[in-house]
Design a protein around this nucleic acid. Sequence first.
DNA 1: TGCACATATGAGCATTTATTCACATGAAAA
DNA 2: TTTTCATGTGAATAAATGCTCATATGTGCA
Lengths: 117, 117
Amino acid sequence: MKRYDVCEERCIHEETVRKVEDEMLGDEVFSHLSNDFKMLGDLTRVKMLFALSREELCVCDLASILNLSESAISHQLRLLRNHNMVKFRRDGKMAYYSLSDQHVVQLLKMGVEHAQE
Amino acid sequence: MKRYDVCEERCIHEETVRKVEDEMLGDEVFSHLSNDFKMLGDLTRVKMLFALSREELCVCDLASILNLSESAISHQLRLLRNHNMVKFRRDGKMAYYSLSDQHVVQLLKMGVEHAQE
DNA sequence: TGCACATATGAGCATTTATTCACATGAAAA
DNA sequence: TTTTCATGTGAATAAATGCTCATATGTGCA
């Protein structure tokens, strides 16, 4: 277990570092946070989420819109489900997906604003 | 080049799919978007960005706060720089980093809200 | 100049991840 | 029941990614 304490005793701004350390959140929070953003950090998934922000869609619809295999879409939908970003309802053979809340929409909106600068 | 057109002519909801296809953004926008979110989708980087949202910090400070090597931090800072998420100023031997705009802060804030549900 | 030190970077390695293929599941229709 | 079809999933593979180690860069100071 390395400590990287070379700098820790010389160059750092002790005050500032201590202050920021105090303000840091718990590891689980950061972990949760980065995992959520990771869901948005993929071209396929971000397109899927954007599409779902417009309409409820089945696997087949998404596959058609993104021009990807249904298997690929299904795999990604499972990830999104596990991260509580989408919900779904079954109707016969079909499964209809939609966003599980409005947070994703807001994040997407903010992201687009930033991207368009 | 597969077309996955099996479904395209049978099970899809043509109306809905066409509507959503019309509303989809350009590929460059989605690409930009997912790349930005990807920067937030890593435990180390999200911690770095959070820390930088509190104080301007040097490489050494960040390494100390995250308990990681300065090399690792430097590599990640380069990524963040390339994505215009952090800016830096040199002062002698030191390099001081800070967030390049408030968008990241807002995204982090929204992410935390969502994570805490 | 020459040394010390903070930061930057290239190569290598181990891990993660996105897609495909093949097959399983489950519901509707024949 | 048997068939069909939309969806779900495990295994495999190729690509991307994060860290480490070694080394380079560049600044301040003796």
